[in-house]
Amino acid sequence: MGTYRDTNEEDLVAEVKGRRLFELDIERLGKLTGMVAVLHGPSLDDGVCMEMVYAYAVGVPVVVMTSDFQTYSLTADGPRFDFPDPLVQAAATSLIRVARLAGEPPVDTPKTRFKIFADRNDSQVGRALDATAESLFDLLAQRPATASLRDGAGLFAFVEQSPYLAGQGDVVALVQGAGYTVRTPARFVDSDPVAAARHDLAKALASDVLVADVSGPETPPGAALLIGAAVARRTRIAAYQPRPGFTHADGREPNWRNLMIQYAVSAHLTDSAALDDWLRS
């Protein structure tokens, strides 16, 4: 089965450290037979999202573990899904949710309420890990169904827009103007968001180009997930970010996103003219 992967960043020496970390991660992703992705809360780690759908796209079973007590929906009474973006469920082979603390463990000696709470958390995490391991061992690696959706000749582009910015219709028009048949997500408007997410993922995997707007406080989960699938399929990827920002860490070059996103994409573009040039190149 899959093993724990550690790039040993603290001791790694490389001319461009972030790029080398990305290369090591991709190398190890290519050797997996199973993956456990730990995701929690409304702000999902973009690196984990990218990695889990890379695994999905090459047929590796992915068990997603969460202790989040929240579920999500598009309307107050609409169908619920387990994560802010239903693409997570579309790519998960199995989902382990332990949303409530375990019962109070036996008390042999007097404990403070803080120690009791910590013990209950430990017990909850233990139950989740046991269930996750059992699920992973039960799964057989199966290449996901990604039947071609090429319903015509020409070039296809999947455009994933950022949920953090409104009014991005010009991106779709620009991609169409460059000669591509554009596919856009349906999961945020469909009455069955998870089923639509599976269709979105299949459409993205069958496209020639992915244009993903990565704007926001972090790479939006949907963009990170689709970038992982595109990397696995060697699809050309444009990360569009009209308002770029950078993060900094000791010993590492500046990153404009999570380093897994930064080095996965074919181009990082900050304006429509650069995107148009890239699409036509």
Rank of each mutant, 00 (worst) to 15 (best):
G154H: 00
A131G: 03
D138S: 12
A141D: 06
D122A: 12
K111T: 05
T132F: 06
V159G: 08
A118I: 12
S135K: 15
G126F: 07
L155R: 12
E104H: 01
A102P: 00
D122T: 07
T146H: 14
T146D: 15
L140R: 12
L136K: 02
F114P: 06
T146Y: 13
G152V: 02
R150E: 06
V125E: 06
R120M: 05
G103E: 04
G152I: 00
F137L: 15
G103M: 00
N121C: 14
E134F: 05
S148D: 13
D151T: 08
L140N: 11
A131V: 06
A153Y: 04
D122C: 03
L149E: 14
S135G: 04
L139Q: 14
T109R: 08
P105E: 02
V159P: 10
F114I: 15
R127V: 05
T132N: 01
N121S: 09
S135T: 11
L140F: 06
I116T: 13
A141N: 10
D138L: 06
K115T: 14
I116A: 13
V159R: 09
N121R: 15
F117G: 05
G126T: 09
D108T: 11
F114Y: 14
A118T: 10
A102M: 00
G154S: 01
P144R: 06
F117M: 15
R120S: 01
F114S: 15
G126I: 04
L149M: 13
T146F: 14
D108Y: 08
P144K: 13
G154P: 02
V159F: 09
Q142M: 13
E134G: 05
D108S: 08
D108R: 13
V159E: 08
D108C: 06
D119C: 02
D130C: 01
A145Y: 11
Q124P: 02
R127F: 02
Q124G: 07
Q142V: 14
T109G: 03
D130H: 04
D122K: 12
E134I: 05
T109S: 07
D119T: 00
E134H: 06
V107I: 10
L139W: 08
T109D: 09
F137V: 14
D119E: 10
D151G: 10
A157R: 02
D151C: 05
A153G: 10
D122Y: 02
S123Y: 01
I116R: 14
K115N: 13
T132L: 01
A145R: 12
R143T: 13
D138H: 05
L155M: 07
F114N: 15
F117V: 10
D138A: 13
A153W: 08
G126V: 04
R143C: 06
L149H: 09
A145G: 12
F114M: 15
T146P: 05
F156N: 03
G152R: 03
A118H: 12
L129K: 15
E104S: 02
P106G: 01
A102W: 00
L149K: 11
S135D: 11
A131H: 04
L129S: 05
A145F: 08
L136G: 02
V125G: 01
R120V: 00
P105I: 00
